[in-house]
Design a protein around this nucleic acid. Structure first.
Length: 259
DNA sequence: CGGCCCTAATTT
DNA sequence: AAATTAGGGCCG
């Protein structure tokens, strides 16, 4: 059974590669090379936008993952503007809509944060696509999750660049679905970060329950390996969130570096 | 007190 | 379906 899944995963990986998965970035990210993209997908739409790449899942109507590289300059972006949540023209149906979230009690929560996309009008606008949105508890989104987002920007400013990938976790499906399209409400969210220093890579992961959470990032910190285990269980596919990084850099994290 | 996370109602 | 307009709460 496991062998079959592994073969399936490899087949999908090959297919995705053949379809242009390895087309290089043309932006000026110092690390670049799409090093931030996870090595897993359910063969759903892989959608590239200026500020992030996402794997959209047509069953959950949420992304499986959203990945981006945040530079110091980008974290200092000052682009303003009110943009509205809208459907992603690059994703085929079915997809979530604003109606599904309206009066549901759940936030339209950004995965790649709005505040990470203020370096370009286009990037900011595209961050509002539902490709980048999941139902999130409001207190968690504006509490613990926001603190992790601010930590990420702080690290980008301090170290020049951060690789980030995050997404939903489904375990008990305790929250059911919302809207006529049946958007699946995640049980929790994960986020993995990587920073390249003179002494090598530093990585960390965070797992936050989709319920009122307002703690500091350190309270939710785990190794990237632990996150990958949870993602594998949630999605039923083998997972490597930072496939190009040495595996031993993902087994632990250094609290004194991140917190 | 500004920045960040948003919501809802109304109009086109 | 999307744009416009007006508003709330929390945290550093």
């Amino acid at each position: 059974m496991y062998k079959r899944k592994t073969l399936m995963f490899l087949a999908i990986a090959l297919l995705v590669t053949a379809c242009g998965f390895s087309v290089p970035y043309t932006d000026n990210h110092p690390i670049g090379g799409e090093i931030e993209l996870p090595a897993y997908s359910n063969a759903e739409d892989i959608v590239r936008h200026e500020g992030y790449t996402a794997s959209y899942n047509h069953t959950t109507l949420c992304p499986d993952w959203v990945a981006w590289e945040l530079t110091a300059d980008e974290a200092n972006g000052q682009v303003d503007g009110q943009y509205s949540f809208s459907r992603d023209p690059m994703v085929n149906s079915p997809k979530a809509s604003r109606e599904d979230y309206s009066r549901s009690g759940w936030d339209k929560g950004h995965m790649a944060p709005r505040a990470d996309m203020r370096w370009s009008t286009q990037a900011l606008e595209e961050s509002y696509f539902f490709t980048n949105i999941c139902p999130q508890d409001h207190a968690m989104n504006s509490g613990a999750w926001r603190k992790i987002e601010e930590l990420t920007r702080r690290m980008a400013r301090r170290h020049g660049s951060v690789l980030a990938v995050c997404g939903p976790l489904y375990t008990s499906h305790a929250h059911g679905t919302i809207g006529s399209a049946a958007v699946q409400v995640p049980d929790a969210f994960y986020k993995a970060l990587a920073v390249k220093t003179a002494d090598g890579w530093q990585t960390v992961g965070y797992v936050v329950d989709n319920s009122p959470q307002d703690g500091s990032p350190r309270r939710y910190a785990v190794s990237v390996d632990s996150v990958e285990t949870l993602v594998s269980l949630s999605r039923g596919v083998a997972t490597d969130l930072f496939p190009t990084l040495p595996d031993d850099t993902e087994r632990t994290f250094d609290p004194s570096f991140w917190h």
